[in-house]
Simulated assay, not measured.
Amino acid sequence: MSQADAGLSTDEEPLKNIFDDAMKLFDSIENGNEPTNSDPVQMSIKVAITKFEKATNLVSMSGMFSKNESLDELPTETLQYLLLPALLGTLSLKLSNQPRINLINVAEIYFKDYLQRCKDYGVTDIEVPQPATAPAQNTDRPQSEQAKITNLVQTRDAKIKRYKEMKELKQKLGSLTEAMQATSDEEIKREYFTTLLQSYVNQALDELNSIEQEKPILEYMAKHAGEPKPKERARAPPLKPVIITRDAVQKAVFGAGYPAIPAMTVEEFYDQRVRDGIFPASATNIPHTTIETAENDGDEAERIRKECLVEQDDPEERARQQNMDEYKDDHRRGWGNRYNRS
């Protein structure tokens, strides 16, 4: 088909400019480091989609492609326009702030249209994937384990084969890109576009596979979107520190120094635990510490006795402590120990 027959005598230059500008945006989006959901990238995606859609309309109005032709009959410059559905599908999946189910449905249409065009022109011989059919009503003959394993192996082998092909095509595209920069040979340019079409065939298959896996998830989320979420268990109140004192005097001292922390005597602490049902209510278990309960422990009894004398401001105890302080001032620790001498 000649360019005149394709209707490109007047629209070829505008179409090329629009497509080239869109491809520059597409490459910057694919190779950029900025997050895809950022405002600048989203704006670039929308502009690129608009340009590719405009190019698609121009291609359709020109009647550039026909099922009655082969790839060899197409002019080299028109080969790149076969990529339009694949490019639009790729960009559609990158959009955000829109219902995801709508985006993947649009992308699915683009990718299938691209694969069908490539099959019509002999770029590939793969069968265009069709929507998964509903499960058979007869459940008396479930799929055997051997059939399941066979399907898994075939899927895995297909993925491995496609991965190797994509790797080889990527290397080939790199070499052809360098060759195109060094020469304007028509054959090299045509081989580059053909290789690019084959590369996007594999990408389209991968994207369609991902879409098929994502659809059930989105449908499930949409189905249960209005359901109330399960109530969270009420959290127990956080524990608060408690300073336990021996008597009311210490309670007043600690309470004055730490007004934000509750202070209570041992008796009050025990009574509180009894009210909370943590400690038994038996009076015999109340851990009151007095001289009577400490009589079996001589050191403890003596310590409590001295504390009581201090609290009562006993003159003899006060004189004894004063003499002890004076003795410590005049006699350093260890003076009477001959074995500690240097």
Rank of each mutant, 00 (worst) to 15 (best):
D299N: 09
P14C: 12
P280W: 02
D185W: 00
N323L: 15
Y220A: 05
T194W: 04
A6W: 13
V242C: 05
S70T: 08
V106N: 02
L196I: 09
G226I: 12
G298C: 11
V59I: 15
D325N: 07
R100K: 10
N209H: 03
A260S: 10
G174Y: 15
G122A: 12
K229G: 06
L115K: 01
T10V: 10
P287D: 12
A147L: 11
E232K: 04
S66M: 08
S184F: 09
P135K: 05
L115T: 07
Y81N: 05
E168N: 11
E295R: 11
G255P: 08
M61H: 04
P230G: 03
A260Y: 04
N138C: 12
E219F: 01
F279I: 04
E268V: 06
E168K: 09
S144T: 15
D120E: 08
K164P: 04
E207S: 02
Y327S: 10
S92Y: 08
I261K: 01
F279G: 01
E165P: 00
S60H: 06
T76A: 13
S66V: 08
I243Q: 05
F269N: 07
S38C: 02
D247N: 09
V47T: 09
K328H: 13
A256Q: 05
N102W: 12
T56M: 11
Q181M: 13
N296W: 13
R117Y: 05
T50W: 01
T10L: 14
N102T: 10
P75E: 05
